[in-house]
Simulated assay, not measured.
Amino acid sequence: MDKKSYLEKAIAWAEKKSTVSLRAVTSDYEDPKSFTNTDTKETIRPDLSFTTHGGAKHYTDVALKDENPQRLVTRWKLLSMMASLKRGKLHLLAPKGHKRFTERLVNRYNINANIYSL
């Protein structure tokens, strides 16, 4: 399964939160803001971003196993740092079969993120 098939569930999850604005990488929503890694020049954009009533900015990523976990670590660390600067959190939504992989990476690399089953 690819990431797009999980995005609907991720959006439904985010809509249950008390959000002020929701952005997602689907045609129905505005795209989330993207960031460029100054070292690699890679553009990093979360799958979802939302702002809560207090003005906190949260980033959400669908966490899928990857052949190159280092890329995920870089991505999640950046999103986590950007969220904490805006009093928010990084939320990782892990589909069945991907949660243990996600937890291992988050713990091994000390990434500040909340992990949820999708």
Rank of each mutant, 00 (worst) to 15 (best):
D2T: 03
D2V: 03
S5W: 07
S5A: 15
Y6V: 13
E8N: 14
K9L: 13
K9G: 05
A12D: 10
W13I: 02
K16P: 00
S18M: 08
V25G: 10
V25H: 04
S27A: 14
D31V: 04
D31L: 09
P32N: 14
P32G: 11
P32L: 07
S34Y: 13
T36Q: 14
D39V: 15
T40I: 07
K41Q: 14
R45A: 04
R45M: 11
P46R: 01
P46N: 08
D47K: 10
D47R: 05
T51I: 15
H53E: 10
G54K: 09
H58K: 04
Y59E: 01
Y59P: 00
Y59D: 00
Y59R: 09
T60H: 01
T60L: 12
L64Y: 03
L64I: 13
K65L: 05
D66T: 08
N68S: 11
N68V: 14
T74K: 13
W76M: 02
W76I: 01
K77Y: 01
L79S: 03
S80H: 04
S80M: 12
M81N: 12
M82T: 04
S84Y: 02
S84M: 05
L85S: 11
K86I: 01
R87H: 12
R87N: 13
K89Q: 09
L92N: 03
A94T: 05
P95D: 07
H98A: 05
R100M: 08
E103S: 06
L105F: 07
V106R: 03
V106W: 04
N107I: 09
R108I: 04
Y109T: 03
I115P: 02
Y116A: 05
